[in-house]
Design a protein around this nucleic acid. Structure first.
Length: 567
RNA sequence: CGGGGUGUGGCGUAGCUGGCUAACGCACGUGCUUUGGGAGCACGAGAUCGUCGGUUCGAAUCCGACCACCCCGACCA
């Protein structure tokens, strides 16, 4: 490919909107252009990388027996109503009407369609197990996109679906995907770690997310150095050290002006945060008012809270009016005197003695509050975030927290969708059974961005050979002075044309100064930079530079031709 | 949705306390020179100053509304 003809432009300056290295570099090197918030065009270079990532995934999913198909982006809303997700999912699901006033949605994922296809096509246990997958555009109207390709609204995802006879079969399919994902991320040059994760609105029984560590990551991972624990913080249950035993003391009001935060309260009273009880107020999607109590040295984990009270439709923070209406006072809140509220208490609070809790009047707290003596929990559960240094539940050593980006996930869906759609098979026993499904996603663009995050330096991108858009970047210098330079460069380019799509090379045939060409070559990041110049020819051929290591050597033209051919 | 910020040519910016023909660097076109690390000279093209409205003799500049985008948070199968 001649650079003079390539649809791209490299930017000398960083675009002001880009913060993450991957975003900055992909824009600067002309791989990407933004069209709107969370909506991007892939330019030819970006498209080629994405295609290569796609091909790696295709090969590995094929290797576990996946069959590629393609399902639509626009769905009749009806099927999302049938599965119930039309009502569970908020504005993230884009809804619209066609000319006939029929309700349509933009697909966020494809469980419904798969379940429908299964209903139509699978009759007998003899047809299972089966894995189907496709690469298809998803649209999710995220409240906030960010980080270039890291969090977008429109993106292409590989989603595969396993279809099994029973839970044992699902386990096998799940493990196959797990193993395939390990291979995929290895081939992509990503150090992904699998963490257990929440099943969210997918339902189901188990899930892992594959994460790459990154300071811009949106998820917090709880990891044990011994390698025996890796959970998303959303679900991580770690140990909590037992509080000191104490005698129960009688409750006592204490005046605490301006102490509306745990920080201020602990400072004012001169006590550790661990001696306080923190109250957080929520309203569930199904309309219940929830007061969550955790110890002052912990934070409420909303995922755990949702799961503890089976809150459909999630949680939102309660308004001050809603809190007051139930006999409580924001900033000085506790379940003391609360009414019409679901009281959810963290199990550690129940084990802790004589905590300072809100008095539900401005400027006052109550000392020596004890559960269940002074108020009655409706639900008792672990509802706190794991903290750095908390003991690993498996080996007791302190856990650490890290930020991560989710590059793939695997879910055990179960039978929710197949039951909803009546997707059953006739078993060996002559009975109808629902097909057991699993769902497995990998976002292409996000992976492209993560590869750049992992493979770049101050000069630009450094593509691993497996995903590089071109095998090499050919820089011709001094062609105007010495016609032999152009002859050799043209020859190498021609060889590349015959060597196959992915063995093609980028040929910088532009009339630019050497500095510009080298800088662009380093920015664009092909794994090999080939330099032809009067100097290299005098030294015996073509200078071959390894972009990653910077090693360079001069090789005879014939040898470089062989390199381009891949032999 | 809350908080903060930004919209001036393809990119990065200046101008913004009201007054010349909207300026600068890069990129772009033509010509000459140059050619191993973001070249030089000359000429040139390119901007409804986000949109709409208001104030004013006069608005990129002041006021209002709206829109878009970015950052933090909420949210995130």
């Amino acid at each position: 490919m001649r650079l003079s003809q390539l649809f791209f432009a490299s930017l000398r300056d960083d675009p002001s909107e880009a913060e993450m290295p991957s975003h900055r570099l992909l824009l600067r090197a002309g791989y990407l252009r933004q069209l709107g918030s969370g909506i991007y065009s892939l330019l030819p270079l970006g498209k080629r990388v994405s295609d290569r990532v796609e091909q790696v995934i295709r090969e590995e999913i094929n290797a576990i027996g996946g069959q590629e198909l393609e399902m639509p982006v626009v769905h009749p809303a009806e099927i999302w109503k049938e599965s119930g997700r039309y009502f569970k999912i908020g504005p993230e699901l884009v809804r619209f009407k066609d000319r006939g006033e029929r309700d349509l949605v933009l697909a966020m994922t494809h469980e419904e369609v798969v379940a429908l296809l299964l209903r139509d096509l699978v009759q007998s246990y003899r047809q299972l197990p089966m894995i189907v997958y496709h690469f298809q555009t998803k649209f999710r109207d995220e409240p906030r996109s960010r980080g270039g390709l890291i969090r977008v609204r429109e993106f292409v995802m590989k989603d595969s679906y396993s279809c099994d006879l029973d839970d044992a079969g699902l386990d096998v399919s799940y493990r196959k995907h797990y193993a395939a994902y390990v291979k995929i991320f290895e081939r992509l040059g990503l150090e992904a770690i699998a963490v257990r994760s929440d099943v969210g609105i997918m339902g189901g029984t188990a899930a892992h997310e594959f994460m790459v560590l990154n300071e811009f990551g949106e998820d917090t991972l709880v990891l044990c150095d011994n390698g025996d624990f890796a959970d998303n913080q959303q679900i991580a249950e770690v140990g909590k050290r037992d509080p000191e035993p104490e005698e129960l003391l009688p409750m006592e009001d204490v005046e605490t002006p301006e102490a509306t935060t745990i920080e201020a309260l602990a400072n004012f009273l001169g006590i550790p945060k661990a001696k306080t009880a923190k109250a957080a107020f929520f309203v569930t999607g199904d309309g219940r008012f929830v007061v969550a109590i955790v110890r002052g040295d912990y934070d409420v984990n909303e995922t755990k809270l949702v799961n503890a009270i089976k809150a459909t439709g999630g949680l939102r923070p309660a308004t001050v009016e809603e809190i007051t209406a139930r006999g409580m006072q924001a900033g000085y809140g506790s379940p003391l005197g609360a009414r019409d509220a679901v009281v959810v208490v963290d199990e550690l609070v129940a084990r802790s003695r004589n905590l300072v809790a809100g008095a539900n009047r401005v400027g006052w707290h109550v000392k020596n509050v004890n559960v269940p003596r002074d108020y009655t929990p409706d639900v008792m559960a672990d509802i706190t975030n794991a903290r750095k240094g908390d003991p690993c539940p498996n080996c007791g050593s302190p856990v650490k927290l890290r930020k991560g980006i989710e590059v793939g996930n695997i879910f055990k869906l179960g039978t929710d969708f197949t039951v909803a759609f009546g997707s059953t098979y006739l078993g060996e026993d002559g009975q109808r059974h629902p097909i057991v499904m699993g769902s497995y996603g990998i976002g292409l663009g996000r992976n492209v961005a993560c590869i750049v995050e992992a493979h770049h330096d101050e000069k630009g991108m450094v593509w691993p050979e497996e995903v590089a858009p071109y095998a090499a970047h050919l820089v011709a210098i001094g062609g105007a002075r010495e016609t032999r330079v152009t002859e050799v460069a043209e020859r190498l380019h021609e060889v590349a044309q015959g060597a196959g799509y992915w063995r093609d090379i980028l040929y910088d045939d532009r009339d630019e100064s050497p500095g510009v060409k080298f800088t662009d070559a380093e920015l664009l990041g092909m794994p090999w930079i080939l330099t032809v110049s009067p100097r290299s020819l005098a030294a015996g051929g073509v200078e071959v530079t390894n972009r990653a290591t910077g090693e360079r050597s001069t090789r005879p033209v014939g040898e470089v031709e062989a390199l381009i051919r891949g032999s």
